[in-house]
């Protein structure tokens, strides 16, 4: 009963955030005009703005935030570590390095996406290879290899920043801070988000049990090794898809699962979908701020995820205490 209420509230917030993203933009459109743009094929400029600019951008933001939050939930359960976030696998580091290298070489947007994807996949492959060496799964090795790899990527990224001409650096900083201006088609990410959220809900009891430690989980009849592999690759897939949309957007993957837990939701059956709704809504609102507050100048959304998120989290933390 209470779970249903929380879920309905989450869906409500998500709908509000998406509506806000459609209503606000650099072109001033009234509620009525946005509604006509949404529903009437002959609405002219309003239809173009709503359908071709704001809707894909809003969907990209929502999918990106939802994927990051879901990856955070999955990795916190896998590593039994409250400080794990979606980037613990080194995905953002690898993707950033790829994207910045492509920018420095003056390659186009398509090559940049390919390079970022290659970097993310390379990071996942290395972390998985180190973690699963000799067929033995070790979550501490996973945690450490991710951290170590990220440090290496950060160093190479800094090297590229230092060597690049000044004109390119601003674009690179946008990528590093996270920015949804160049998000491609969001439909794949949205579909992936729905599929992974349903998958996580189906695995929810097992994710709960994983928190008891591996021995206890196995004694309760959970196939731990297969579950760990599934969770690892689901989280890697979610993070990669999110990074491909918006670059290295910080804060969402770490904080959204905690924000939902602070509301008293701890069972994964509800935690996973709620984190997805919260992360999606949060990034949608942050992105709406990023593209309107300084319009026509767009800001990296990563700045706003931190500026909005930090006070909210601090409030939730003190309220609890």
């Amino acid at each position: 009963m209470r779970a249903t209420g929380i879920l309905v509230a989450g869906v409500g917030v998500a709908a509000l955030s998406l509506s806000a993203a459609l209503l606000w933009g650099s072109a001033p459109l009234s509620v009525h005009e946005v509604w006509r743009g949404l529903t009437d094929a002959n609405a002219g400029a309003a239809r173009d703005i709503v359908w071709h600019l704001r809707a894909p951008r809003a969907l990209a933001a929502f999918a990106c935030g939802g994927l990051l939050a879901l990856a955070g939930v999955l990795l916190q359960a896998l590593l039994r570590n409250a400080l794990a976030d979606s980037y613990i696998l080194g995905v953002s580091g690898g993707a950033s390095l790829g994207a910045l290298a492509a920018t420095m070489l003056g390659l186009g947007l398509a090559s940049l996406h390919t390079a970022a994807l290659a970097g993310a996949v390379a990071a996942i492959a290395i972390v998985f290879g180190v973690t699963f060496r000799g067929g033995q799964w070790n979550i501490y090795r996973l945690l450490l290899s991710g951290v170590v790899l990220s440090a290496g990527f950060a160093a190479l990224t800094s090297l590229i920043l230092v060597l690049s001409p000044a004109a390119q650096i601003k674009g690179m900083l946008f990528w590093l801070m996270g920015d949804l201006s160049y998000a491609g088609n969001p439909w794949f990410a949205a579909m992936l988000l729905i599929a992974l959220t349903l998958g996580a809900a189906a695995l929810a009891p097992r994710l709960d049990i994983l928190g008891l430690g591996e021995t206890k989980a196995r004694s309760l009849g959970v196939g731990v090794a297969a579950l760990q592999l599934t969770v690892f690759f689901s989280a890697a897939l979610a993070t990669t898809a999110a990074v491909m949309l918006g670059g290295a957007i910080g804060f969402v993957g770490l904080m959204m699962p905690h924000a939902v837990r602070l509301l008293g939701v701890t069972r994964h059956r509800l935690l996973a979908p709620m984190a997805v709704l919260a992360g999606g809504s949060f990034l949608t609102i942050a992105d709406t701020c990023a593209r309107t507050l300084w319009a026509p100048q767009q800001l990296p959304v990563g700045i706003f995820t931190a500026l909005i998120g930090v006070p909210c989290m601090l409030y939730l933390l003190t309220r609890r205490a």
């Binding site: 039994r80 409250a82 928190g211 008891l212 430690g213 206890k216 701890t266 069972r267």
Partner: peptide, 17 residues
């Protein structure tokens, strides 16, 4: 698991619920 239950000596648990 329906037949055999274990109370482990050590549980490296991180349980938030």
């Amino acid at each position: 698991a329906q037949a055999i239950g274990v109370l482990p000596q050590h549980e490296e648990s991180e349980f938030w619920g």
